[in-house]
């Protein structure tokens, strides 16, 4: 009886211990992640940006917020963040990957996942430590999960001070966030699963591009089928995109939210699209 309860206790202990001990993180061998803040000192009531700068091994990729046919986007949970408010991840526009028979959306080489944060107005000056638990998946032919923990110390002071290098990094990737003030009007129709998106307005601002170099990425996985071919057409005052409704759509789409990425001759333009029908 004593032995039995000892064994039971041992297992209970092991179970508790295993939930405390960090997860094995095989994906970490293929991605180097550095957590940064664009501010070194923050004044109460001000805001800044945290960044998770991922340097990804050649041949491997991580995922965008809507990963496509498979894959999983990164997730971040925060602790010790009393007095700080952290927002949603801001995702630079993605690239398309072909994985076997599937199409996925994500990043190769390098990306920066940005999280806006603010210090509450009544914070006392001093040092504050925040902890971010980051979970992501990295894939080549095989996929490996990663579970990492980062601690960052933020000084609260009278005046916000920026870290020049980190601020430059953040602004380099802020340029890769979908533009919201592009001035183009989106509208769409759905006919038997075929989604026709129309953008009207001043298309000259988009520069020179070939309609074949346009991709629409929906923000969630229940709108557009990632592996269905997309077609774009340009006429005098409108850009048309023909897409296929997702098999996971809960009915005929009433909203279409995503990013139109135009890989033009002078660079990439990414347009935030928020359309309802």
């Amino acid at each position: 009886m004593i032995r039995f309860s000892t064994i039971l206790l041992f297992f209970l202990f092991m179970m508790m211990a295993s939930s405390l001990v960090a997860q094995p993180s095989p994906g970490s061998d293929h991605v180097d992640v550095r957590m940064i803040s664009d501010v070194s000192v923050i004044s109460p009531g001000d805001s800044g940006t945290f960044g998770f700068h991922m340097t990804i091994e050649e041949g491997w990729h991580t995922y965008w917020k809507n990963p496509g046919d498979s894959g999983i986007p990164a997730r971040i949970s925060w602790s010790g963040a009393d007095g700080f408010e952290t927002g949603e991840i801001q995702w630079p526009w993605p690239e398309t990957f072909q994985e076997e028979h599937l199409i996925t959306h994500g990043y190769k080489n390098e990306t920066l996942l940005m999280v806006p944060f603010s210090a509450s107005a009544d914070l006392q000056p001093g040092s504050y430590e925040l902890t971010a638990n980051l979970e992501y998946l990295v894939c080549e032919k095989v996929c490996l999960p990663a579970f990492e923990r980062y601690n960052i110390t933020i000084e609260v002071g009278n005046e916000t001070e920026y870290h020049a290098g980190n601020r430059a990094l953040v602004s380099r990737f802020t340029e890769k966030l979908p533009e919201t003030d592009h001035g183009l009007e989106p509208a769409f129709t759905v006919d038997e699963g075929t989604v026709l998106l129309r953008l009207t307005g001043d298309l000259t601002s988009l520069g020179d591009f070939d309609p074949d170099d346009i991709t629409f990425y929906a923000y969630t996985d229940d709108m557009i089928e990632p592996s269905a071919p997309q077609q774009a057409q340009l006429d005098d005052d409108a850009l048309w995109l023909k897409l296929q409704q997702s098999r996971y759509a809960p009915g005929t789409l009433t909203e279409l939210n995503g990013v139109v990425v135009i890989r033009g001759s002078e660079g990439v333009t990414a347009l935030d699209i928020q359309a309802s029908r």
Binding site: S70, E99, E100
Partner: peptide, 12 residues
């Protein structure tokens, strides 16, 4: 009745 499956791609 239908959801998006998640995991590793099937290695056909």
């Amino acid at each position: 009745p239908t959801t998006r499956p998640y995991g590793c791609s099937v290695k056909y």
